[in-house]
Nucleic acid binder design. Sequence first.
DNA 1: TATTGTTATACTCTATAACTATA
DNA 2: TATAGTTATAGAGTATAACAATA
Lengths: 150, 150
Amino acid sequence: MTRRQDDLAALDRVLELVYLLDQDMTQALARDGLTKSRAPLVWDLHQRGPSTQRALAESLGTSPRNVTGLVDGLVDEGFVTREPHPKDRRAVLVSLTPYGEKVMARMAGDHVRLAEQLFGPMSRTDLDGFTTGLASVVSRLHALVGSEAP
Amino acid sequence: MTRRQDDLAALDRVLELVYLLDQDMTQALARDGLTKSRAPLVWDLHQRGPSTQRALAESLGTSPRNVTGLVDGLVDEGFVTREPHPKDRRAVLVSLTPYGEKVMARMAGDHVRLAEQLFGPMSRTDLDGFTTGLASVVSRLHALVGSEAP
DNA sequence: TATTGTTATACTCTATAACTATA
DNA sequence: TATAGTTATAGAGTATAACAATA
């Protein structure tokens, strides 16, 4: 095994991890009636409280038009409500419903449980080694993606 | 720092890795004129040679109808051709064009380069520790996703 | 009768541009 | 004049169902 082959094997394992994690999260979201596009919006509301659609568009890095569509779907499914903004009659305040809050609480619990299932069985030493390597890879990836912007 | 907090921190780092890798790969595919849906189809043809659409649908885990749409797009962009199947007049053989092959060769090179950029700077020991931890996480994730199927 | 790939239909996500009501 | 959110329009991706041609 040359070093290059080890590097390639590591990358392929990482890609397998990405694929499996995507599967797992998509399945979990589907059980809660959410999609990969809608979940970040709901999570944003959970973390930051009621927001205008403009603020959501900026936070999610997408267009205001797209937020309109996402909020439409979430209103239909009962996750959020649209209310008039108290101070700006052009704007709309999007808020989580009690049902939306309940789903978010469940998601937070699932998050903790997943972390324990994945890393709990590892020894302290193994976890430390893994986390250190992971941090260095992430920092290099940050540099790569940042420098690739148009 | 409790152990649970360390587990959570590890998961969050992994999710950051997933996010950055998705960015990087989407950018790289866009430079080659591909999308995240079309790339696996083209990669499949590169690895296994000309296929029927039925075979592609099974390999990609999607519907025949969807393959029709993906192949339509790839034909328009010059990556693949549709030819009559020599032995079964119901079927169609999808093949890479020379241009498609060229792009696949470039993608393979990018893959090796990414592996070296991400893991090359790590010491042998660090890489080993990282890879070992990764393998155990991936195997547990496999079990989780597998057991979650309906 | 079974299989291959299509048309028909519908829904989600995304983007840009034009428009409205307000600020 | 600028901002918030809409309608209008377009295109990619996905799914199910009905259907044609062929096996």
